[in-house]
Nucleic acid binder design. Sequence first.
DNA 1: CAACTATATTCGTCAAAACGAATATAGTCA
DNA 2: TGACTATATTCGTTTTGACGAATATAGTTG
Lengths: 115, 115
Amino acid sequence: MINANDFFDALSDETRRRLLVLLVGDDELCVCELCYALDLPQPKVSRHLAVMRESGVLSVRREGLWIYYRIHPLLPAWAYRILDQMGQGCAALEIFQGDRKRLKEMPNRPVRCCA
Amino acid sequence: MINANDFFDALSDETRRRLLVLLVGDDELCVCELCYALDLPQPKVSRHLAVMRESGVLSVRREGLWIYYRIHPLLPAWAYRILDQMGQGCAALEIFQGDRKRLKEMPNRPVRCCA
DNA sequence: CAACTATATTCGTCAAAACGAATATAGTCA
DNA sequence: TGACTATATTCGTTTTGACGAATATAGTTG
């Protein structure tokens, strides 16, 4: 079970918050979708995802070449609620709106076969 | 109005989270009470309070020699809810319990005359 | 006014963490 | 098998931010 300090460490970086806001809205996204949405280099995105995976904020599944990240399903209720409210708070910021817009317009998004 | 990035910066340090959790529970506390509760040197506590004051997470009033901090009353609803849930999440951690216990047992707490 | 108390700030140092570039790994498909 | 794709990791550097120690400020009280 994640503890509060690890959880808030995950929230302490803007790149990670951008990733989390997308994942709260979309339930599951692969690395290439996240890179495209944030318009950031893949190693940078992977590094931030790794931080959150290792601290238990995110969980992962593989499907072929693609790795899908989601908010960890065993997060305690208070943590879920914070992520949800974070979405509300960030919705007003242009940068977060751009992320969602790019994701929506991304061409050739990988197709989940057996989610 | 505070923006989400400034708000989450405030939450990114454990000392600041300890201060916030006390303030969420007690509505208004002076610097010496916070120093005593956290058992930390006054300049360290003041510096962290300043970070949160400058970003709009806390507001301040003076009463004689004492300066009372509180959660900023104009915080947006999502931010209040996050602070509230943070209290839930941190309640399980020993260090936060110790803070509240010391505060409760503090001798000679300053008396508010005209809150 | 001087002494005192509560709080704030400055400064130099140090450590954590984010970064870009390069490379490694792992799965797929011909 | 080798080429290719998606993702992960390593490494050296740089930036950010927390820190302790010292000092400044501001209000109170004699």
